[in-house]
Design a protein around this nucleic acid. Sequence first.
DNA 1: GATCGGATTGCATAGCTATGCAAAACAAGA
DNA 2: TCTTGTTTTGCATAGCTATGCAATCCGATC
Lengths: 420, 420
Amino acid sequence: MVGGGTGKAWPADDRLAGLRSGMYDRTRRARRPCGAIAMRALAHRTTDIIRYRALAGMDLPPAWCQGAVWDRPVMNHDMREQATIRAVTSIDVARLAGVSQSAVSRAFSPDASISSRTRQKVLAAAASLGYRPNRIPAIMLSGRSYMVGVVIGGLENPFYATALERLATALRENGLQVLLMHVHDALTLDSALDQLLSYRIDAVVTSLAIGSKTVARALSQLHIPVVCFNSSLVGPWISTVNSNNHGAGAVAARRMAAHGVARPVWLAGPAKNAASRARGEGFRQGLREAGLPATALTRLQGDDTYDSGYEAITTLHRQGIRPHGIFSSNDMMACGAIDALRERMGLRCPHDVIIMGYDNIPQAAWRSYDLTSFDQHTDLMVTRAMELLDEALLAKGTPLSRTHVVDAQLIERGSTAITD
Amino acid sequence: MVGGGTGKAWPADDRLAGLRSGMYDRTRRARRPCGAIAMRALAHRTTDIIRYRALAGMDLPPAWCQGAVWDRPVMNHDMREQATIRAVTSIDVARLAGVSQSAVSRAFSPDASISSRTRQKVLAAAASLGYRPNRIPAIMLSGRSYMVGVVIGGLENPFYATALERLATALRENGLQVLLMHVHDALTLDSALDQLLSYRIDAVVTSLAIGSKTVARALSQLHIPVVCFNSSLVGPWISTVNSNNHGAGAVAARRMAAHGVARPVWLAGPAKNAASRARGEGFRQGLREAGLPATALTRLQGDDTYDSGYEAITTLHRQGIRPHGIFSSNDMMACGAIDALRERMGLRCPHDVIIMGYDNIPQAAWRSYDLTSFDQHTDLMVTRAMELLDEALLAKGTPLSRTHVVDAQLIERGSTAITD
DNA sequence: GATCGGATTGCATAGCTATGCAAAACAAGA
DNA sequence: TCTTGTTTTGCATAGCTATGCAATCCGATC
């Protein structure tokens, strides 16, 4: 009865694999509908197969028939050859240090049970071989990759660029890696998420301003924590950190009223942008509370770019309207507006017109604009996002939905200076 | 002689592991200096151990005793519990589809040998279970992760932000993932690289403007392809894509001469920035070729920020120097310079002074600046970088060093318009 | 010297997929 | 029906580390 003593206990020893193939009657190896490995590993649930079979004829979602999963690497993928260039492994180090592989692993785990003498030996060997701990197998073992998918768009907006910078820093300080995904539109989002998921990311952080239900569903179906910035997305796994857009809009309205602006202009961002909508709504409500009729508000449509701000004011000019106060949904449009006011209408801030933006991008402080703006307090928002992420990751498999709101701070500059 | 028929062939069958522990005389399990697994796997080289031992007493580089490797995840790392939430595996899909695990794998490989009927079955099962192919084990098998470490700094410069955007897009189109690392200074670079390497990235792409030898050495020692933008780094594994900084500087000089500027100003970036140095050198040489004496050139020191450009001109003003032509190492400094010229000295472009920048950031086109600038042709540079990367990855383990130079294009705007 | 508890070490394994190989199924022609 | 060539399928394995468990070592106490 000693291990594999009976004749039928093949396959007996892995190391005999090379010999085995000729050892037994090949005809015995009957085909079975399901792989032996699979059967063995899951034998306790084989009865389910029949039920599952019923599903097998169903239609496939298009994403599975084409797109991301199939659009595999264009670059070389001759994997076998590459494998010959083996990196230094913990076994190499163990051999050199004269210890077991486990000792090497422990030497690189801060809290492991290992004597300092052994650790020194191992580290010395590792250093001389150029060994770096390999996290890939650990991902398989733990099911956690410590990678977070960061999905962004619109990096041409300096606000998002600095936000990404701080986010990346914060994630790294929390021991998480950033797997970056830049998406241009909601269409590419699906395939982007597919790719991210195939790397078994632990969570998704996104600053996408898109607020559609489709996107929310796609994110919820990942079954991993999702943390959004300034989004209206709601769903089982989705947490959100928002700037107090509505409140800031109201503050802007009060400033307008204080400056005696009777017919304020609201320069809106794209309708899809939930943050922009909230700012506009807050602005509208603030004006109402200040006693201005709803008809007093002029609404201009922009798309968050400098050019659209310039264009919006140009249009206003053509309509013969002369603005006295403008609240822009973001700073880039506000800059465009300022330039158009000067070039097209010959108006200067703050003498002829006051203007407020949102985001407090670096350019708002540039002397040509000197733009009053709401600062989103990115640092705090990122900190809050880390808290939400931590909480969601700790919840392990339980969907969590939390929301944090961070107040924006009005940074007063020349564009709203009191003129007397 | 049928598989494992003899009694001493333990460990005989993995599936008997549970029984085995009590089957043989435990005292036989003598301790050996090196793990049995390691010894077995590497038996052909055990003689090396003695030689290796001699090295084991050496001093350790500090990075191995503290820092990145030890500063492990702050967030939860109870791996065992997490592992209970198993993701859907290919075996689950195989069971549901009534096929072997290999069939599932093949169904997701475009070129695999599999009948379309089987593929359909598998995809249907995969879709109903929400299975996504898992690339992590493939990384272990192939030794290629298809992840590229992207090391950046200075995202507050819109040029780098848009460059990152295009780079990320291009990498994704080539089937490569972006593992992002934002570094603030050369000090954090080492630990950043350590972390990246532990994820077995295939290559590094960086736009860091730091050009020190230490950095070059650190990158070379990774033993994976490195592609740099606008850097002077040289080393075994390092390839570079540079803007034709020197040539552009010469072009700028010719424009200066054509405008009749007798005492041009060079607004330099930080000395560490190799691109800035090259631009300045080209400018200097161009002036010489235009017949201007070396003493005609005024050099101002900046640090690539708007504020430093503003400050530089302010200093110039204090010195009582009135500039007629300025070439700035980048657009942000040029914008600061333009504002300072107007506010401090009352000078306007191009009437009183002409100015040229570099990078052609979006703000250069903003009406308040209307800045003539050299466009780096980012798209082409990224394309070239992809070519270099592809070549280097195909070279598998052979260090490659190539350089591409891409001409910059002068985008003429109002700041150098001919005034008559 | 004997005993005991704690610290350290090594062994064996799990984790999941891609792929070489051989077997089986299939197709086509004799 | 038999042969032969092609396509498809399943089996078994490799890849590397972290960790439970058991064995061993070490130091202290009796």
